[in-house]
Amino acid sequence: MKHQDEIWIKLKDLSLPGILVIPENASGLVIFSHGSGSSRLSSRNNYVASVLNRNNLGTLLFDLLTEKEDLIYENRFNIDLLTQRLIEVTLQLKKQTNTGNLNFGIFGASTGAASALRAAANLHEEIKAVVSRGGRVDMAQESLQMLEAPTLFIVGEKDEVVLQLNQTAIEQISGTKEMEIIPGATHLFEEEGALDKVADLTADWFKTYL
């Protein structure tokens, strides 16, 4: 059994909508940081989340921007703002009775991986693991050396520019790290079986470290 809620996360001066799922006997909670132009309704992230739920991991998908903020294109690439939102939401969940006792991880996709890595570097021991899917890790350059959480980079073989960025980034991390290259996959992992592989790798990583 699992418990699913459509929630509003109240921050200082705004509220952000989210989908919180906590399976019975959950061993951890994974917070999703989606890429630009996406939202809590992202079909790819929801699929990955469903696989995590089946592996007894809780998930939170939420909108990092309000509807009004999202109308301003530049906000989608304001990594400082998105990172701060991710940090605030994480700290908020740490105070909640139904989530505060869980180990936390962050899953970031595309530009969302930049805010995931930066938030994890800032939150230190609060974040136990990170997974980056097709991540624009170059946008988190200054945080990589401070990253303590075990981090998995998943990249498509044919996503050549992002693959090179990830190969450069992983060398700067001194802690536990791995890279998985999905054969034949492009940036959105739309090829047959590619997203299944992403989800399985992600579940294994978070089960190991959460």
Rank of each mutant, 00 (worst) to 15 (best):
Q167S: 15
A140T: 00
G37Q: 01
N78W: 03
N166W: 13
A114S: 03
R133K: 03
D13R: 12
A109V: 04
E67Y: 06
G18T: 08
S115P: 07
S174K: 15
L41Q: 12
E126A: 15
T90N: 14
I127C: 01
N45E: 04
E190G: 13
D196I: 09
S174C: 12
T186V: 12
S36L: 06
T90Y: 14
I170F: 10
S174R: 15
T176H: 14
A185S: 14
G100C: 12
D138V: 09
R136Q: 04
V131G: 04
I72Q: 12
I106L: 07
G134F: 05
F77N: 04
E6T: 09
I19H: 12
I106D: 07
K2R: 13
Y47F: 00
D159M: 06
T186N: 14
R85V: 10
F77V: 00
L147T: 09
A114W: 00
L147M: 09
G58Q: 03
L14P: 11
A121Q: 03
L165H: 12
I154L: 13
S132E: 01
H124C: 13
L188Q: 15
G134R: 04
G18Y: 02
S115T: 09
G112A: 02
V162T: 13
S132K: 02
N46W: 01
L41S: 12
N46E: 05
K94C: 10
A140G: 01
V51L: 07
L11C: 14
A114D: 00
L210F: 07
D70N: 13
N45S: 02
G108S: 03
L117Q: 03
A129I: 10
L93S: 06
G156T: 04
R133P: 00
L57T: 11
D138G: 13
S15N: 11
A140P: 00
A121M: 06
L91P: 08
I72H: 13
V137S: 06
G112K: 00
G37S: 03
E160K: 04
N45C: 01
L165R: 13
E126Y: 12
L91T: 14
E171F: 07
S39C: 06
L57D: 09
G175W: 10
S15P: 05
L71N: 07
R85F: 03
L210R: 06
N166Y: 15
S39A: 09
I182M: 00
E6L: 08
H124Q: 15
N122T: 08
G175V: 12
S15L: 10
T90S: 15
L14A: 15
T202Y: 10
I170T: 14
L11T: 13
V21F: 06
F77Y: 04
A199D: 04
E180H: 14
R76G: 10
D13P: 05
E157C: 11
E6F: 08
E67N: 09
T151R: 11
P17T: 12
F77S: 01
P150E: 02
V131P: 00
I87T: 12
A119T: 12
I106G: 07
N98D: 11
E178T: 11
M146E: 15
E191K: 06
T66R: 14
A129D: 09
F104K: 03
L52A: 01
A119P: 10
S50T: 00
R54N: 05
N25Y: 14
I79G: 06
L29D: 10
I181M: 05
R85Q: 06
R136L: 02
P17N: 11
R40V: 03
T83K: 09
L102D: 07
